[in-house]
Amino acid sequence: MEKFCNFEGLVVPLDRANVDTDAIIPKQFLKSINRSGFGQNLFDEWRYLDHGELGMDVAKRKPNPDFVLNQARYRGAKILLTRTNFGCGSSREHAPWALQDYGFFAIIAPSFADIFLNNSFKVGLLSIVLSESIVDRMFCEVNETEGYCLAVNLEDQMVTTPSGKSYRFDIDSLRKSNLLDGLDEIGLTLQHVEKIKAFEEKHRVEQPWLFK
């Protein structure tokens, strides 16, 4: 995983609650056995007027002009602003892969579904929880202001608006340090290999039926 750096990025508003992982990346694209290339099919059924399948040339498809990601003013957005319970539904990590592959560095919402939140941190995508009133205000500002950007500072846990107003967000210390250091979590866990083996031996004695 790459280190997460502070950045400033254009915001695109997706004004829906309960955006589910089937909407973020529809199932036909899950047939890929690769980890990359999902960005072109992010929000596929909302983003295109025709039906998409894995391997289709997106340049030949019909974009839906009404969908917010297709509007010229939001081209190159790095931050997705959305509503409660973002990422509900399946455990597909393809959802954060697609968001990241599209170019998003961070998602801001009043709440996230548990598995999505977990997956997003695993891939280095920052999910930021801000209160509903702050998110409401940001929706108003982004709609009124073309080129609306937010600055995200993970070390200080701050999001700053163009007018200079800053909002602090909470994040687990472990998730934060993993993002900042871009560490290989498996490597980190394997530093405890003796502890895992010791636990396993004790577990085997106590519940031998769990082992062959």
Partner: peptide, 23 residues
Amino acid sequence: AFGIGTSEVEHVLATQCLSIKKA
């Protein structure tokens, strides 16, 4: 029993463990 993403699938394959926050 709970669902996990692909990074965690790899993590469990490699380590038999997961770092989890208590609910």
